[in-house]
Amino acid sequence: MTAAIEFHDVRRAFGTIVAVDGVSFAIEPGEFFSMLGPSGSGKTTCLRLIAGFELPDGGQVRLDGIDVSATPPYERNVNTVFQDYALFPHMSVLDNVTYGLRVRRVAAPECRRRGEEMLALVKLADAGARRPAQLSGGQKQRVALARALVNQPKVLLLDEPLGALDLKLREEMQLELRGLQRRLGITFVYVTHDQGEALSMSDRVVVFNRGRIEQLGSPQAIYAQPRTAFVAGFVGAANVIDGRYAVRGEHIGVAPAGSPAPEGAVRIEGTIVDTQYQGAVRRWQVRTDDDQLITATRPEGEANTLHREPGARVALSWARAHQIPLAAD
């Protein structure tokens, strides 16, 4: 089966800044694929290269096996949900949704039927006559989604679509997007800087840093086996010890200073910099005697007898099995 999207050694520079630096990967049809990374890492430029807003300076972008490296956006069977929604303010909601059909000269009754169908799908059946300015953020989001999906694209691109929504709405929309993707069976490419979002929604995740791919894999693989110090730090904020391996905070035990190490464990002593109550867990930030800052996350209530004030001595320990070896950067 041909990949839905393929990047072959793609390069895109803006002046002297190389936004995408020789990137290759493939996205399978029907996949929920997330591109994760800090701002300026190249994830958004990759999305724009798929949409056609940018053309590559080098390498090849393929959609369905066809080279589209010089194809304008309007000749790609790909649609985008924009970060700012980009709804046209001078058109009604229905006109926004049917825009793609109208510019392709689909007959008016057909436009209307499909537009209303799409609005019903995103639960905005009654909003067709309204203007974008009269909608809430969440509603605009749904209209943007309907406007993209009405064209029956093979690939839907989503550029941090939930960034502007509040937490509760964001979680609702995450569920809805995931459900929609399963139902429609089309490929979703989702750009985000929120690792939690990427891990919970995706079939596969690619982590970008400085225009290059750090790691590509399932959410489980990215979290459990970060390949580089960057991935370990960016996804789930793991502790990188001596630059050689990573240990997750939840795998680090805290005990009184001087207590013996459990069998098969690494033990290290240090002084508390601070501890923070976070509801179910407490974060312990400890500076070791060889001057590394290590964060342990323990269930709140555990190790209650310990002195928690900054400056107190504690012992940290973790099983060797929980050390994740890292590739050199």
Binding site: L63, D64, I66, V68, T71, Y74, E75, N77, R104, R105
Partner: peptide, 9 residues
């Protein structure tokens, strides 16, 4: 597919 999909091309 791209060219075939759009009669206006």
């Amino acid at each position: 597919m791209a060219a075939a999909a759009f009669a206006t091309a």
